[in-house]
Design a protein around this nucleic acid. Sequence first.
DNA 1: GCTTTTTCTTGATCAAGATCAAAGTCCACC
DNA 2: GGTGGACTTTGATCTTGATCAAGAAAAAGC
Lengths: 259, 259
Amino acid sequence: MIKKKLFFRDCSDYAPYGADLMRKDIHNSNIPVRCRSCEVRHQGMCGALTADELLALSAHTHLANHSAGEELAGERMPVESYATVIRGVVKLTKTLEDGRQQIVGLQFAPDFLGRLNAEENAVSVEAASDVNICRVPKATLERLVKSSPALAERLMDQTMRELDEARDWMVTLGRKTAAEKVASFLMLIATHLEPEADGERRAFDLPLSRAEIADFLGLTIETVSRQLSKLKADSVIAITASRHIEVPKLSKLQMRCGA
Amino acid sequence: MIKKKLFFRDCSDYAPYGADLMRKDIHNSNIPVRCRSCEVRHQGMCGALTADELLALSAHTHLANHSAGEELAGERMPVESYATVIRGVVKLTKTLEDGRQQIVGLQFAPDFLGRLNAEENAVSVEAASDVNICRVPKATLERLVKSSPALAERLMDQTMRELDEARDWMVTLGRKTAAEKVASFLMLIATHLEPEADGERRAFDLPLSRAEIADFLGLTIETVSRQLSKLKADSVIAITASRHIEVPKLSKLQMRCGA
DNA sequence: GCTTTTTCTTGATCAAGATCAAAGTCCACC
DNA sequence: GGTGGACTTTGATCTTGATCAAGAAAAAGC
């Protein structure tokens, strides 16, 4: 039974957030925060912290799919520290003893990774693409949550959103056909990777391989491939490279989703 | 497409909690609270409230499966009030436009029903068996959550537990065989209906019909029935009445669950 | 008690998707 | 530029679970 393993390497810049960040900027969580070291703008959780707290805890890490180095150990990582996804896609998986695997969630920026008060996380956390995360030590976050109702509320909101997404996906897993599952997956990626896009046209790179898509949809790679070919033959999508998908008319794809 | 509807009737006793409940009893959430009107002992959420708050908000309702009366309207109910399950099983369902249905969660006592801060609930809430619930008006609960960190924490814990359960079930839906799904369902019911039971033997009434089990497992009634017959033929379970299941050896059932 | 309706079980057949197999494509690396 | 390896596509066949159908059992109504 081959279980794929992914790895992470720390990037060289562990520099904290620049001191030029004004406390008022950070307190207002509607203002995006720019990290001086990686130049990625991000908002969300960090916006709920104070500048001092941010300075104390921020350490950026680049997770790279398939790169050599220390293992990003499934269950262990989120127990030792929490993190916010800044860029890229993280997959949450569960595996049966005999190796059958199911992806139970995908996290996009600016989602929060890790679970409060849990001794052991029930899911494996792996980078699906190259990923930047903003790490927060376990003890630090748990202290912050107690003193900051806004942060606690943000975590509650994300947890409820994840629950909604999990339940939506249960319908897909339990009651949709293979064709509908694949269309629903493309729809999910299209809306998450380009949430602000307008109009009917979309173009994006799939963050997952065929095998990962199969694990997400409860199908085999062959079935995923066949259904993608079928959508292509029907001109619902164009596949210019195996990972690059173009959707000329989103509503046409939507009609294939079965709901 | 036939969509089954369930109904509720209010029971006659809307009496609030007895004034003989001592404030100290209620503050200590480890002490079960006995409702004078329905004589059902229950703990959990109510234990986190003060006596005054309890008096102000408690109204018991008996939900009855299939009884005539006002409709327990899927999405509407949990929006107008929140509730704790005191007795019975409540199912959360989602339905595709063409009528395909998936049960996305089961709530047992003392689970909490309803969702904070949500304008509209994404799931339909229906009684699976006769159910007693303790209702809390929407505004009341939202006010209490703001002032009581303990209550907020309890809601967060339940939400995370529901998320774990949803993800566990995603593995079952996506990666298990029909036989494993049915065994897993029986395991779920056995552990939830008799959580404190000891030893290997279990006996219980199924709270769901074959059709509901099928909707929970992403299968058809026929397949559910066949797999139950097979478990019976293999002496893993005994079916004394169609709803009554006896499990002589839980570990033997566990081995059929595929994980 | 008897009928009617609903739920459950069992059998026969069918089809969606899995499995098995092979060839094609895309990269990374030398 | 060529080679090796992983990923993807496509085809042939098989299995699992769906569908169709009928009868049995249980529950509801009268």
